[in-house]
């Protein structure tokens, strides 16, 4: 039995934050692998973050009993939704958590890539990095992401090649310690801060990104980077 396995049935909670993703959420959920190596029990936690386009109904229509739907009464942002997913996973004693974007930009097979170091007990926090092999990534995205990587390093003192990646994995040790306080997009950098604060064993694995017109329109724009910078600075200044 590899190091890190629970002698019980290891459980994975796949956290999928979704805000107005009615067009693609069914496809994203249906594309999730039926079985994931290393875990026997998979729960897909979709957090409908106050969507107004019927995202929740589309999630119900999948009819997939692995899916649990959590609905935010009002929009709280990416960080708010991820925090809700983590709180749910913590409450239900998840062994592993993976965060996964709802817009279809992740390759489903990368779930196993991110999960592997956790299951093998080699890391407590894993970032799926799109920039270790940025094939197909628009140049302006590469530039924007590198800028935010540098900024995250300056503010929080930890280097990662893809601080804004939506595909991340955490072991139970991490799930119990990581505290999410930021509500919006800046949460991606906050995860890096938390990995450092909690002194978690950290690994990066290369993942691919699927860029469709839809995911490019929904994802972070370079203009958002300035908002993220300002929020991160404010957070750093006003931390209590």
């Amino acid at each position: 039995m590899p190091l890190g396995y629970s002698w019980l049935v290891p459980s994975l909670y796949l956290i999928v934050p979704a805000f107005n993703e009615a067009r693609v959420i069914q496809t994203t959920l249906r594309n999730l692998p039926a079985r994931i190596a290393g875990v026997d029990d998979v729960t897909v936690v979709v957090i409908d973050d106050g969507s107004t386009d019927g995202t929740a109904d589309e999630v119900r229509r999948t009819g997939d009993p692995r899916v649990v739907l959590l609905r935010h009464g009002i929009n709280r942002g990416l960080g708010g939704a991820l925090g809700t997913g983590l709180a749910y996973a913590r409450r239900h004693g998840a062994d592993f958590v993976i965060t996964y974007d709802a817009d279809g930009q992740h390759a489903p097979e990368d779930i196993e890539t991110v999960l592997r170091p956790l299951v093998e007990g080699k890391a407590d926090a894993v970032i799926g990095s799109r920039l270790l092999d940025p094939k197909g990534m628009p140049w302006y995205r590469i530039a924007g992401n590198w800028g935010l990587n540098v900024f995250t390093y300056v503010i929080f003192g930890m280097w990662t090649t893809d601080s804004q990646s939506g595909l991340r994995g955490f072991s139970r040790t991490a799930i119990e310690q990581v505290e999410i306080r930021m509500d919006r997009m800046e949460v991606s950098s906050e995860f890096i801060k938390e990995i450092r604060r909690c002194r978690l064993r950290f690994a990066e694995v290369p993942i691919s990104a699927i860029y469709s017109d839809y995911s490019l329109a929904k994802g972070q724009r370079n203009l958002n980077a300035f908002n993220i910078l300002i929020r991160l600075v404010l957070h750093r200044l006003m931390e209590d």
């Binding site: 649990v68 708010g80 809700t84």
Partner: peptide
């Protein structure tokens, strides 16, 4: 909002 969402979690049937 989080507490309410978790209390009202619904399993897809």
């Amino acid at each position: 909002v989080r507490a309410q969402a978790i209390d009202r979690a619904e399993r897809v049937t």
